[in-house]
């Protein structure tokens, strides 16, 4: 298959949504064949663009008076969340409902897991009820991959430990493309707790495949050199990195994943790595500011910056629905072998 990447619909100006393209699209012989979405590391640029394009089509559904299509009628989607989540969990539920699927919402703390049931037994018991797709969040990296080996269901990774969070990165990439009209050639800076961040890892994989130049920034204790092997630049100076930046993605300090003191004080962190109005003075006027949430206001992001005109943070949440509808739709259409680990 020739990889002639039609990267873009017409460029969108900041603050506007993409103009609809009424010209007839050329038929593409593209075939999506992945029964799972486990991470962005394995996806090709063409697969990433196919998800983004499918999500664009799903955006329209949320503008209808009846915000529902019958595509996954009769399918059962299970939300299997072993870690807390507000946005991702609700977004997957709503996305599944808009596709007319039935949704089971599982919370580990109120389940038999607290009675000692293993992950494998939990999953196989739920599968025995006749379900089609697991959306899983787990503190252990690789948990979604493990589930693909013990069930015949489709599996979507909604965040596994510090490994990947593919739908969040797809949302970030989709939002960048919507505001900037392209990904290729953009300077994207990801700031904060890179070491513990599955969002950073998925973003680096996805953005570099699509031709962006990614720089990860933070204190030396939170920015491993290993990110250079993934294709990103590493920096510890935020002001220098922001000078040429088109997009900055601010990450939360994940205290729940830290086992030792990684910086002297929150005040020092804010002074060196917090995004404030003063710090924006030396940046491009159309710098796009993203944050995957939840925000610690006044730490990584000043309140007025989070709510300012350069921020697309709430747009990311809206776009999350379209991305998750696209991913649920695509994996459920895939005819690939669901039992085998795709690697």
């Amino acid at each position: 298959m020739s990889v002639d990447l039609p990267e873009n619909e017409p460029a969108a100006q900041a603050g506007q949504t993409i103009q609809s393209n009424s010209s007839i699209e050329q038929a593409r012989d593209y075939v999506w064949s992945r029964p799972h979405l486990l991470g962005l590391e394995d996806l090709s640029a063409e697969e990433l663009l196919h998800i983004l394009k499918t999500a664009e089509s799903f955006q329209e559904v949320s503008t209808r008076s009846i915000k529902k299509v019958p595509a996954l009628r009769g399918r059962v989607i299970v939300n299997l969340f072993f870690e807390d989540s507000t946005r991702t969990r609700m977004s997957f539920i709503l996305a599944a409902q808009r596709l007319s699927a039935d949704v089971l919402d599982f919370a580990a703390s109120k389940s038999s897991v607290s009675k000692g049931e293993s992950l494998r037994d939990t999953v196989r018991n739920i599968e025995a009820m006749g379900v089609d797709t697991f959306v899983i969040r787990h503190s252990a990296a690789g948990a979604p991959h493990y589930i693909t080996r013990c069930t015949n269901c489709h599996v979507i990774n909604a965040g596994d430990g510090q490994h990947e969070h593919p739908t969040q990165a797809l949302i970030d990439i989709f939002t960048i493309r919507e505001r900037k009209g392209r990904i290729k050639g953009l300077n994207v800076v990801i700031v904060g707790d890179i070491a513990h961040s599955r969002v950073a890892r998925s973003n680096v994989w996805g953005l570099t495949k699509l031709g962006a130049k990614v720089t990860v920034v933070g204190p030396t204790t939170l920015v491993p050199k290993a990110f250079e092997k993934m294709g990103a630049s590493v920096s510890h100076n935020l002001d220098a990195a922001l000078k040429e930046a088109d997009v900055v993605n601010m990450l939360r300090i994940q205290r729940e994943r830290m086992t030792s003191q990684v910086f002297p004080s929150t005040e020092e962190y804010v002074r060196l790595f917090g995004l404030t109005r003063q710090r924006l003075r030396g940046t491009k006027p159309d710098l796009l500011i993203l944050h995957p949430g939840p925000i610690n206001r006044g730490v990584e992001l000043a309140s007025d910056v989070a709510d300012g005109p350069n921020s697309s943070i709430l747009r990311q949440v809206s776009n999350g629905l379209a991305i998750r509808m696209a991913v649920l739709f695509l994996v459920n259409q895939a005819t690939g072998d669901t039992c085998a680990d795709p690697q």
Partner: peptide, 26 residues
């Protein structure tokens, strides 16, 4: 223009050939 992919009664059998396009009715 209307894309009917999501409304097809043979969607489950279509498999990966189902390519979604935009519905544009403004």
């Amino acid at each position: 223009s209307l894309d009917i992919t999501l409304y097809r009664d043979d969607l489950a059998e279509l498999g990966p050939q189902a390519i979604l396009r935009k519905t544009e009715i403004d």
